[in-house]
């Protein structure tokens, strides 16, 4: 196990140096992406100076569109067996109908990346964890599959891997719990944080209902939109201070 970890570490270091050199050689200084300014070297720890988050404008989210879901599951190698009750569902579309007015809304729903995540509090092995930059993750090697986090999550955001998994892109494991990682591999991209797969897909569809970015950086579009228009948390009464916010929800 230790050897594997070392190999992984060398591989990561090698890959990051190769990509770093490649990026430096191919991208001219004048056209550096804005995000590279936030780039973090692979060997640097994540920092609480960042708080990664998502913003969703429900008024722009199209009923019936599933692009974010498809993109997320493709990106993360989460395949469906056609049994949604037991399939891993990292992100889902939720249709809301107001019981009084009949007003219909649609929104993508996933791990809300709470600042005070109940899943982390209840985990007996600290497999459920929150990074300093606000991303809530599960360490598959430490998860014993007790599902207490799923009992504690107020959002049904977590899935238990009920069946053997094949075609993994990122590590997954039968008998462990998983959920949206906010595309943490993109956040940790040596070239700088990139949009999550769901946000890219929403933009590609032309709906532009989702934003990803650093909530602590006032210059990001997500921060500016939140400052200008505000944003709601789902189950704000629980005081979890979620990293995922919604606009035009009520």
């Amino acid at each position: 196990m230790k050897n594997d970890n070392n190999i992984n570490q060398y591989r990561r270091q090698f890959l990051s140096s190769v990509t770093g050199v490649a990026a430096g050689l191919t991208i001219a200084p004048g056209v550096l992406l804005n995000t590279v300014a936030h780039a973090k070297q692979a060997d640097q720890p994540v920092s609480s100076k960042n708080r990664w988050g998502l913003l969703i404008d429900t008024s722009k989210c199209a009923t019936g569109c599933n692009a974010c879901v498809t993109a997320c599951h493709k990106e993360n190698g989460v395949s469906s067996t056609g049994r949604p009750a037991t399939d891993a569902v990292w992100i889902r579309k939720v249709k809301l109908t107001d019981k009084v007015t009949g007003h219909v809304q649609s929104l993508p729903f996933m791990c809300q990346h709470c600042e005070k995540p109940p899943c982390v509090d209840v985990c007996p092995t600290n497999a459920s964890m929150k990074r300093d930059d606000g991303v809530v993750l599960v360490d598959k090697h430490a998860c014993i599959g007790c599902r207490y986090c799923m009992m504690a999550c107020p959002y049904n955001a977590r899935s238990f891997v009920h069946e053997p998994v094949t075609d993994q892109i990122y590590p997954r494991g039968q008998g462990t719990v998983e959920s949206c990682t906010m595309c943490v591999h993109r956040i940790d991209d040596p070239e700088g944080p990139r949009n999550t797969a769901c946000v890219d897909a929403c933009n590609a569809e032309g709906h532009k209902a989702m934003w990803f970015g650093d909530l602590k950086d006032p210059s990001t579009e997500i921060s500016q939109r939140l400052k200008q228009y505000g944003g709601e948390q789902i189950r704000a009464d629980l005081g979890l201070n979620t990293g995922v916010r919604y606009q035009n929800l009520s």
Binding site: P84, A85, V89, R92, K93, V94, K95, L96, T97, D98, K99, V100, Q105, F109, P154, Y155, N156, I234, R235
Partner: peptide, 16 residues
């Protein structure tokens, strides 16, 4: 079901 969206009927693939 957990009360996530008070006053709304909620439909989703996992029957929220």
């Amino acid at each position: 079901p957990m009360p996530m969206f008070p006053g709304k009927e909620v439909e989703s693939i996992i029957n929220d």
